[in-house]
Structures are given as structure tokens and as C-alpha cells.
């Protein structure tokens, strides 16, 4: 069966894009409204990219793709991404 990692796996790739450790950032799921730290998300990495899913409803929060020279981050299912000021 397909397995997944927890959101701590996102620390590396997201550090290339954001200033802070994004695994302790909170975000609201655009589908179900669940608010949690990114470390609690479900990360499906056995795929052509990383599909990050909501711990509560399983819908897609974000998609990360490395294309060799580029990294693309799609935050389609995250609202109110919050980091300490």
C-alpha cells in the first residue's frame, strides 16, 4: 500500500523558498478548515513530486515539484499560512 511521511520531511525543500522553518508554520486547509502546523501534514513523496495532504480531510494542501533546475511550489489548498514575525 502507499505510505507517506509526516510534514517534517518538508523542512529541506521549503527552506529553499522561505526564510523560516516552515514545518512549524501553521496553515488552514482550504477544503475543511483544519488548522495545524505543517509538520502534521501527510507527505506523499513516492511520486514525480511531493503531494502534501491535510491530516484531517486528506485533500491536497500543496504540491512541490523539482524539475532539475527549478522548484515549483503550488499552495493550492493552504490559506492563512502563518509564521512567527
Amino acid at each position: 500500500m502507499t505510505s507517506h511521511l509526516d510534514g517534517n520531511a518538508l523542512a529541506g525543500p521549503l527552506s529553499e523558498l522561505f526564510r523560516d522553518d516552515m514545518t512549524i508554520a501553521t496553515g488552514r486547509c482550504a477544503h475543511c478548515g483544519d488548522v495545524s502546523v505543517l509538520a502534521q501534514a501527510l507527505v506523499y513523496d513516492a511520486a514525480p513530486g511531493w503531494a502534501v495532504r491535510c491530516r484531517a480531510c486528506g485533500e491536497v494542501l500543496m504540491v512541490i515539484v523539482r524539475t532539475g533546475e527549478r522548484m515549483m511550489v503550488d499552495l493550492r489548498g493552504v490559506t492563512a499560512l502563518e509564521v512567527p514575525a
Partner: peptide
């Protein structure tokens, strides 16, 4: 036959 998926089965 590697198993790849963007979500649960």
C-alpha cells in the same frame, strides 16, 4: 514494479 502515488490508495 515501483509503486508511485500522490495520495492514499
Amino acid at each position: 514494479f515501483p509503486v508511485l502515488s500522490a495520495g492514499p490508495t
